[in-house]
Simulated assay, not measured.
Amino acid sequence: MAAVGVTPAGSAAPTSAHHDRAPVTSSSARVVGDGSSTSCTSDAVVRAVRRGGVIRFDCGPRPVTIEMRRTAKVVNTSRRVVIDGGGLVTLSGMGQRRILYQNTCDPAQVWTTSHCDDQASPRLVLRGLTLARGDSTGQDLDGGGGGAVFVRGGRLKVVGSTFVGNRCDRVGPDVGGAALRVLDQHRDRPVQVVRSTFRRGRCSNGGAISSIGVSWRIEDSTFLGNRAIGRGANPARPGTPGGGSGGAIYLDGNLFTLSLVRTTVRGNVAREGGGAVFFVSNDRTGTMEVRGSRLVRNPSQGFETAGLPGIFFLGARLPTIVDSVLR
C-alpha cells in the first residue's frame, strides 16, 4: 500500500532549527588527546565528560575508534556538555556497555534540585560523533534501555552523528532505544536530531530510539535496518515477555509530538507493531507529522494502523503527511 501526502495550498514546511554551532576556541574547549591516536583513551573521555563543557578531540588526522571501558557519565552540575567528534571519532561500547549516561534524577550524578525531572541543564549535545556497539542489556535503572545513550532530564540534541550496531534488552513490554532512550526533557521541549543516521540497532522495542512522554523533531536523518525483537507487545500478552514494537522509533506516554522532516526510514522491522514508528499517546493528545520524508519497506509483523504502512498510531488525530511517501 502506498500513501503520498500533498502539501495543502498556502502551507510551507518548517524551517530547520539552529544547530548549536557557536564558535569554539582552543582555550574554551576541553581537548581529549595530544595529537596521537593512542592518547585518545576511554579514561580521557570519561574524565572530560565528568568535567563538562565543550569537548573536542586531537587524535591525529585519521578516523579513530575509542573503546569505552567505562560508561561516560554527565555530572548534573554541568550546564552544558558538547561532545564534538569532528567526524573522525567513534566511541565504541565494545558490545559490553552503554556509552553515555545523563540522569538528573540519579543522586550518584549529583541531585541538584527538588524538581530533578524538569531541570534545564545539563544540555547534552552530540556532534560529528559515531556511537557504535553500545549495549545496556541488564541496566534497569529508570526502566533501562538506551544501548548507546540514556538521557533523563536536562536537554539532548544530536547533530551530524551516526549510531550503528547498538543493543539493549531483547525482551520487555516498554524497555527500548538501542541507540537513544530519553525521558523528562526540560519544559517538554523536543529532542532535536539533525543530519544523523541510525543503523542496525536491536532492542525489545525501538530499534533506534525510544522515549516516554518526550517529543522529537527529526530532520534530514536516516533510519536503516533497525529491529524491535521483543515478543508480546505492551501490555504483554499472557505467556509472553512483552515488546517487539517500533522497528525504528518507539514513543509512548501522554502529550508528546513527533515531527519527521526530510527523513528516510527504510528496511526497519517490528516483530509486533510499527515497523517504522510505534506512537501511542495514552490520553490521545499526542500528534505526529511527516514532511518531505520517505517511509518505505518497514514491515510490521504483528499490527499497524490501516492506511499507514509501517506505522502504528494512537493520538489526537491521524498524522499529518505532506509531500511524503509511505509504502
Rank of each mutant, 00 (worst) to 15 (best):
T130K: 10
S136P: 09
T137M: 00
D140P: 13
D140N: 15
L141R: 11
L141F: 11
D142Y: 13
G144C: 02
G145R: 04
G145L: 12
G146M: 07
G146H: 04
A148V: 05
V149Q: 07
R152F: 06
R155W: 07
R155L: 10
L156S: 12
V159R: 04
T162R: 03
F163K: 04
V164E: 13
V164P: 07
G165D: 11
G165R: 06
R167D: 03
C168N: 01
R170F: 09
R170C: 08
P173T: 01
D174W: 04
V175C: 10
A179Y: 02
L180R: 02
V182M: 09
L183G: 05
D184L: 13
R189E: 13
P190I: 04
V191K: 03
V193F: 07
V193M: 08
V194K: 02
R195E: 11
T197C: 04
T197M: 05
R199V: 06
G201L: 06
I209L: 13
S211W: 05
S211N: 12
I212V: 09
G213P: 00
E219Q: 07
E219L: 04
T222A: 13
F223E: 08
L224P: 11
R227S: 14
A228L: 11
A228R: 05
I229S: 15
I229V: 14
G230S: 07
R231Y: 14
P235D: 15
P235G: 15
A236C: 10
P238R: 12
G239D: 15
G239S: 10
G242H: 01
G243E: 01
G247I: 06
A248C: 12
I249S: 03
Y250D: 13
L251R: 02
T257N: 12
L258H: 07
L258V: 08
L258G: 05
S259K: 00
T264A: 13
V265C: 08
R266K: 14
V269D: 03
V269N: 01
R271W: 15
R271M: 13
